[in-house]
Design a protein around this nucleic acid. Structure first.
Lengths: 142, 142
DNA sequence: TTTATGTCGATGCATTTGCATCTACATTGA
DNA sequence: TCAATGTAGATGCAAATGCATCGACATAAA
């Protein structure tokens, strides 16, 4: 039961506060532009990447690391917003297939510039390429 | 409206996923040990640091970067759990003073080993002191 | 003083999350 | 084939969060 040393605590605080601040900035920018939250972007992206065959909700859950009920309800809302379509699965009577709609595609496209802009300003402008690579290297140890 | 480059996106993903995973680990450990969530720890720590004079809710809000209503309700719950005491402020008729109770102190003390253990295992064991310092240096640019 | 404006903190209401559990189908194995 | 067990996804209910607004007091300006 070791106590974390000072540098460890410093790293922890830096990670948590930085990530929280950046997330809030992104969410605020999306909301200000009248877009859905970031989670919808992530979901739309994965569903889009899955192509015309669509994606099973449990696959999305694994990709986004969401709880099962969270996934179910996220999909509910996105269906209601007509960004995706849910269809019963042929192969598996328990399951479903989820696909993006045209509207979903265009919403995701519209979100990207807003999202990208924040990332450029908040990260791209503040880290050199080497900094960013170094940061990834360090974080990937965790 | 620059597009973020690859390293920038990589850094973003690394920050967000790492921080989420670590936070979930900490929260899960606290819950498994029958303790309150991490936010309570942070609040208790700040209130304790404020000493016998206590702390004004708006000061806590600034320290923890919480929304105003979030602070108000966090304090509600902590008062109900008898970890802190709320008292009307003499100087300022609108305000209050918040202080830790003995129970609050002991709960925070009990939380710390659980918290510390996760930090040691998940960060301390995986980063050298130099890594941690470097990480802090990079994140503090953001 | 009075009045306007600002700040502190609470709260009603809608939305979201968390937890536990449920239903329906699938798979294993006797 | 039929029980037993496992997996996909939904959902009722409680708790937490977000948003807007309010009431009470403070402060500045007339």
């Amino acid at each position: 039961m070791n106590k974390p040393d000072r540098p460890t605590q410093g790293a922890w605080v830096a990670i948590v506060t930085t990530s929280r601040r950046l997330l809030e900035t992104v969410e605020a920018a999306l909301k200000a532009a009248g877009h859905p939250p970031l989670a919808w972007y992530d979901a739309l992206l994965e569903i889009e990447k899955a192509g015309p065959d669509g994606l099973r909700p449990f696959e999305l859950r694994e990709l986004l690391l969401l709880p099962q009920y969270g996934t179910s309800r996220l999909l509910d809302r996105m269906v209601k917003a007509e960004l995706i379509e849910r269809q019963d699965c042929d192969d598996d009577g328990r399951g479903q297939i989820v696909r993006v709609s045209d509207k979903g595609r265009s919403v995701r496209q519209a979100m990207w510039p807003v999202y990208a802009h924040v990332l450029s300003e908040e990260i791209g402008a503040k880290l050199t390429t080497e900094d960013a690579a170094q940061l990834v290297r360090l974080l990937s140890k965790l």
